[in-house]
Design a protein around this nucleic acid. Structure first.
Length: 806
RNA sequence: GCCGGAGUGGCGGAAUGGCAGACGCAGAGGACUUAAAAUCCUUUGGCCUAUGGCCGUGCGGGUUCAAGUCCCGCCUUCGGCACCA
């Protein structure tokens, strides 16, 4: 049969329509089959549409989803829209359109673009975080957190972006700049809703041991959680009866603590105002520090500043000596106790401070030169100047000193975390309203479940205000309400949730997206959860990935979901750079538009190139020429139809080994996310097919089956044209025959002293002894040895022979 | 500074301690064509005294019959964190 030209413009829409009409990719809770839940991060439907980064992750997981279906799994591969967020709101403000309208337009465009790429999403399960039927449950989970004491309102110095006019979470501040707009972030004290993620610090850490996450994601989360073990210990403040508590991970250096430092905001200063001689000076310093943003504070880290507290001294509990007390902004309020014992001999920061202010430096661990800088060797260091602890190694002394201090009742072992509570308020319009009412007599009162969803009111203006109030505050009809508890006058909370809220549980909603009674039914959750494989960006490691684990751990603790951890496996794709090797951006003019690509080379070739361009987990520059090369490959696959002899069913004897090897390699490579080498193997296969006079239906089918997860449209089409029966997506995934993984003969590289001298064919599978014997009696090899003495002879089966000659 | 990656042809990149450069791109030569496109064939790491040989995976050492791969010490680069006691 003479096939027509390969025309993706015709065949791709046809198959997309077919899959959709027949509901091929609808997920079903089929208990007769094992389930598999593939997940990609649901996109933010931005106005600029899809970029080439989306298909990278989507295609990778689409391959897994399609392969799993062929393997007999019941697969859930859903899609949705993470649609609350600032760009939409800003666009709405600039163009005087309601954000909901902008959102639905953007979603429409995104959906269309994704459909053109032929992903096997179950579109019947779409979720949209801005849909009241969705955010009803986001609000509901918030109320559960509130009920369990994990949501609270606190006056907090927050990161404030003056341009976006919004408070930011620590995670959203990058290098002192607003993650969204790049403007410098300042400090601002505001009453904010907070989520007590710190209560889950240890669980978030422990849970990492039980999941299969890409190593760098685990490392980054551990780093961010920042657990450190040490002890808290009390220093007496001379003549006051007060004690000053510090946290240290190095109790072994206590004898070297020659002064103490408090953070400028430390409460002790206000408690002891009568004794302090230079209160004005201290308050001036505090004010100055408060004005600085965190970034400014850290930027100045080279020059240490501080003020000694006049009239106050503390007692080193080890030496009994009086030591001065200072304040300095290098000690942070939010970590540990906000106070430290300073050991300048063995801590760089303390050393710099002591040098700047002429404070004494006492060496307590030998081996370095403390006149030159702080020195610390926790492995081999030995204690000196430390009384009864002299001569101990650092790790012994840490134990012994802690025991001694605990015994004296002035210390306790303590674990600290860097992780801070999550700032959960946003002073913007386009987010989930926080379902809390502030009653004059009852205080903060949660809305009853029956009043959910609390709808975002329609407003005229979305502009944020300089006062730091949400635009919702201006809608008095909405703000003024009755207290659900006492019925008295009350005001609604006007802050909204951050866009991390809706994305913290969306994977649960996919299990049962239309449920009106619960966020998802227990049965559906039990069937689908946990997510088996979740692929997404590294940039979400300390944001979305951590937040959603926290919510899920919490929902597990209150008995609403099964396993504690939501994701069994997490992988990450590298970003695609522009052709010039720089990040793609409009301003650089190096953006590749997916629509143009589909028009030019078709969705299948586009998908194929996304997988072929390089190692999946690394950053790779785009190459238009490379993409066209993938289209050429598909053209070659198409033209193989001219070579196929459908009368011959089985795999050709001559190709049996290569085909079986390919089945194994491609399958294995998909599982290991080595998509580039999987594609390379199929290219090799096609090249070899072209060297044959004819290929059999068996040869051709094997290729099509392997290729179909990456390039589904062309494979379905050819399957139909060749009348192979049924549809390719219904075929079982091919299995290799282990008996045909190695050829009858192997080419052996014969080396002399590690250098290849010749190549000889031998029967494959010979062991060391037989292989050596077989080869060393070959005339070529005898000649090679030329009577020299053989010191050693190594035979690696089917690979090489190395003769070590004198 | 700490944590985690990465350094291999002109380019993207392959390589369970076992023949470095698979596969693709780009280039060169050829076939077909009036011509072009498309397609097909050949070729493509460097150097040399070229049917052979030498050198080559960021740098310097080491282990090994054998190192891109393992070990020690560096350099460069990217990402994350960063005065966290």
């Amino acid at each position: 049969m003479q096939p027509e030209m390969y025309d993706p413009k015709v065949i791709e829409p046809r198959w997309q329509q077919y899959w959709e009409e027949k509901g091929i990719f609808r997920a079903s809770e089929d208990h007769s089959r094992p389930k598999y839940y593939c997940l990609i991060e649901f996109p933010y439907p931005s106005g600029s549409g899809l970029h080439v980064g989306h298909p990278r992750s989507n295609t990778a997981m689409d391959i897994i989803a399609r392969k799993r279906r062929m393997e007999g799994y019941s697969v859930l591969y859903p899609i949705g829209w993470d649609a609350f967020g600032l760009p939409t709101e800003n666009y709405a403000i600039a163009n005087h359109v309601p954000p909901a309208k902008v959102t639905s337009q953007n979603i429409g465009r995104f959906r269309e673009q994704l459909k053109r790429l032929g992903f096997s999403f179950d579109y019947s399960r779409e979720v949209n975080t801005t849909d009241p039927q969705y955010y009803k449950w986001t609000q509901w989970i918030f109320l559960k957190l509130y009920e369990h004491g994990l949501a609270y309102k606190a006056e907090m110095p927050i990161n404030w972006c003056p341009r976006c006019k919004i408070g930011l979470a620590n995670e959203e501040v990058v290098g002192g700049m607003c993650e969204r707009c790049g403007h410098e972030v300042t400090r601002r004290v505001k009453k904010q809703w907070m989520l007590r993620i710190t209560a889950y610090a240890q669980k978030l850490l422990d849970g990492l041991d039980d999941v299969d996450f890409i190593d760098r994601a685990k490392a980054q989360q551990r780093n961010w959680i920042g657990r450190s073990e040490g002890c808290e210990l009390d220093f007496a403040v001379s003549g006051t009866g007060e004690t000053l508590r510090v946290f240290t991970t190095r109790p072994d250096t206590l004898f070297g603590a020659t002064y103490m430092v408090l953070s400028p905001e430390h409460p002790l200063i206000d408690r002891l105002t009568d004794r302090i001689e230079n209160l004005d000076e201290l308050r001036a310093y505090r004010e100055q520090a408060a004005k600085k943003s965190d970034f400014e504070r850290t930027e100045m880290q080279k020059e240490k500043t501080g003020v000694q507290i006049g009239g106050l001294s503390a007692v080193n509990p080890a030496t009994g000596k009086e030591i001065p007390v200072w304040i300095s902004d290098y000690v942070l309020t939010g970590y540990g106790t906000g106070a430290i014992m300073a050991v300048p001999a063995h801590d760089e920061r303390d050393w710099a401070f002591a040098k700047a202010f002429g404070l004494p430096i006492v060496e307590v661990i030998s081996g370095g030169d403390v006149s030159q800088g702080a020195w610390s060797d926790t492995a081999d260091g030995v204690l000196v100047n430390s009384g009864r602890f002299n001569g101990m190694k650092v790790n012994e002394a840490q134990q012994a000193m802690t025991d001694w201090l605990v015994f004296r009742g002035i210390a306790e072992r303590k674990v600290n975390f860097k992780l801070r509570d999550w700032v959960f308020s946003r002073q913007r319009y386009w987010g989930e309203p926080i379902p809390i009412v502030h009653c004059l007599s009852c205080g903060a009162v949660p809305l009853p479940e029956s009043e959910l969803p609390l709808l975002l009111p329609a407003v005229e203006h979305y502009e944020p205000t300089d006062s730091g109030e949400s635009p919702l505050a201006a809608i008095t009809d909405w703000v003024n309400t009755a207290c659900p508890h006492c019925g008295g006058p009350a005001k609604r909370e006007t802050d909204t949730m951050p866009n991390w809220a809706g994305s913290s549980w969306y994977f649960l909603r996919y299990c049962d997206p239309h449920n009106g009674e619960a966020f998802a039914s227990k049965a559906s959750l039990d069937y689908w959860m946990p997510v088996d494989w979740y692929n997404g960006g590294m940039e979400h490691t300390t944001l979305h990935l951590l937040y959603s684990r926290f919510w899920h751990l919490f929902l597990h603790d209150i008995g609403l979901v099964g396993a504690p951890e939501p994701y069994r496996k997490r992988t990450s794709h590298g970003n695609i750079l522009g052709e010039n090797g720089e990040r793609m951006s409009k301003s650089r003019g190096n953006v590749i538009n997916p629509d143009d690509l589909v028009d030019e080379i078709g969705a299948d070739a586009f998908r194929l190139y996304e997988m072929f361009l390089g190692a999946f987990d690394q950053e790779i520059p785009w190459s238009m020429a490379g993409a066209r090369g993938c289209r050429r490959f598909l053209d070659r696959v198409w033209r193989l139809q001219e070579k196929v002899d459908n009368g011959a069913g089985d795999i050709s004897p001559a190709l049996k080994v290569l085909v079986n090897q390919s089945i194994r390699k491609v399958g294995d490579d998909y599982e290991r996310m080595k998509y580039n080498t999987a594609v390379a193997q199929m290219m090799t296969l096609v090249n070899v097919y072209y060297d044959q006079p004819r290929i059999t239906a068996g040869d051709f089918k094997a290729l099509l089956l392997l290729l179909s997860p990456v390039a589904p449209h062309i494979c379905e089409e050819i399957w139909q044209i060749q009348r192979y029966g049924g549809f390719i997506h219904q075929m079982p995934w091919p299995e290799y025959d282990a008996a045909f993984l190695t050829a009858d003969e192997a080419e052996i590289a014969v080396q002399v002293n590690g250098k290849v001298r010749m190549k000889l064919m031998v029967p494959s599978g010979l062991d060391q002894e037989t292989g050596r014997a077989e080869l060393t009696r070959r005339p070529e090899v005898v000649e090679l040895i030329a009577g020299r003495e053989i010191l050693k002879c190594i035979y690696v089966p089917d690979r090489l022979l190395n003769l070590v000659l004198r």
